[in-house]
Amino acid sequence: MHVVDVRGVTRRFGTRTVLDGITLSVDRGEILGLLGPSGSGKTTLIKLMTGIDKADEGTVHMLGEQMPKLSMLQRFGYMAQSDALYQELTARQNLLFFASLYGLSGGRRQQRIEAVMSVVNLLDDLNKPVAAYSGGMKRRLSLAISLLHEPEILILDEPTVGIDPVLRQSIWKELNSLSDRGTTIIMTTHVMDEAEKCDRIGFIRDGKLTAVDSPEGLKSRSGTDSIEQAFIVLGGGVRS
């Protein structure tokens, strides 16, 4: 059974078709990167997977359950593209709030808050108001929040924007160890070298999934030696 099973999904906003007949599946513990220019439909696809949005056609199954389904949100970790944080509150208060929404409390909550903040290297800034955080720190806090309840599927929308290379490496190390322990990770990105670290990459362009394969597979299929070249060849080439 696939952890993520998207079949023939189409989503329209008014007359505009944002996603056009997408079929995609992801296995347990896999890291899937969705690569495409902004406006290609990556975020919409992610919202359909979480059940925040609903497909006009086709079905989405997550962990065997048909979406959208409220109780499934407990099993996902989600990091939105914009840093959805409460600026007036401290990092700890933000974490406490989201931890409570996921049903964590008491010592377990405390322990998880410290664990996720050490992953993103923000333990020393736990009691600072978020308004005093830099852009990169906010991204890291958003990531920490998505990890709080140890989700089975982690859905990350542009997770490493504004994060410096050293920290990006340590975050990738954590993502890899999560996937080794069975967490499925789906992320959007438009950074080519980041996509290369994923187990598989899906190319999205104008709402269509043009190719899904491992980085090596994509390169050999397109007869190129970089993901960027492969995207140009397999992603429909120069727009007509």
């Binding site: 949100l73 407990q74 593209q81 914009s82 959805a84 600026q87 929404l101 996921y102 049903g103």
Partner: peptide
């Protein structure tokens, strides 16, 4: 408008 509602609704809150 700050996106926190969307984030909030990505949790299992009714």
């Amino acid at each position: 408008t700050t996106g926190t509602l969307e984030r909030l609704l990505a949790t299992p809150i009714r």
